[in-house]
Design a protein around this nucleic acid. Structure first.
Lengths: 142, 142
DNA sequence: TTGCTCCTCACGTCACGTGAGGTGGC
DNA sequence: TTGCTCCTCACGTCACGTGAGGTGGC
């Protein structure tokens, strides 16, 4: 089933402008077969890719340039997965898995770094709230 | 002790340009007494304020307009705290505490929303990593 | 006095928003 | 055929980056 740009944007929670811009800078595929002025056509896989890009952008504050690197690394990993299936060479297989592991680990470190910053902020807010609640109790019992 | 703009930017982990821009749009005080062309002067309290602004910006993806609202609400709260000290009226005191509580709670909801999104992303990455590790074990025992 | 940092324009950039004017598909 | 969505410019905007040219303070 083929999706039009408006539906893609809606599903991913963004605008058609953003989708076009991401295609323009090469962050989304943008089928080279499309004739000038003709409508773009997308798949649900494109929607998932876009959703992941937007999540990374929002949660990790990555620039579109950094996201391009990440997407390229992602594509390279997909190729390696195929090679993994084909090859019988044990050493090669091990290398491919190590590659993938390193990639995931770096992403995890980014995510965990942000998580801990957010946790710090949360603790501050909880502490403030606790102080206010203590005062409320004082007010009632005092 | 008075700080110059470069030192403030360094301590808060940003640039002098950002500090000047925030002053320009009214997000940082920008002492109105400063003569044209004269150096800006800051305190450690300004540094803390800037750090909080930057943390909110980065972690919650707030626009500078939204940050201005937040800072104004923060200032309003400070005034209310003073009033809380002065007034003896029990009802008034209760109202002030409720105000503050509502404010903190809204911020906490924002922070927790983001935290859970990050947690979701983390779980995805951990699951991927687990699959890779399982394959590694297969490779060694197979 | 010599560096270093500061100052104010002012143009550039990134990641889109927002029309203008026109064409395509259910 | 009529709406609705799509198309391509192209200028606007937000949040700064990056010099240019000049002045201030330890």
């Amino acid at each position: 089933m083929s999706l039009r740009i408006g539906e893609v944007a809606k599903r991913a929670g963004t605008t058609t402008r953003t989708v076009r811009y991401y295609e323009e800078i090469g962050l989304l595929p943008g089928s080279s077969t499309r004739a000038q002025g003709k409508h773009r056509s997308f798949t649900t896989a494109d929607v998932e890719r876009l959703e992941e890009i937007l999540r990374m952008r929002d949660l990790l504050n990555l620039s579109l340039e950094e996201l391009k690197d990440l997407v390229e690394a992602e594509d390279a990993r997909a190729l390696l997965r195929e090679e993994f299936q084909r090859t019988k060479d044990r050493k090669r297989r091990r290398r491919i898995l190590e590659e993938a592991l390193g990639h995931i680990t770096r992403q995890l470190e980014l995510v965990r770094g942000r998580k801990s910053e957010l946790a710090k902020l949360e603790r501050q807010l909880v502490a403030r709230r606790r102080r206010i609640k203590a005062r409320e109790r004082e007010l009632n019992t005092g």
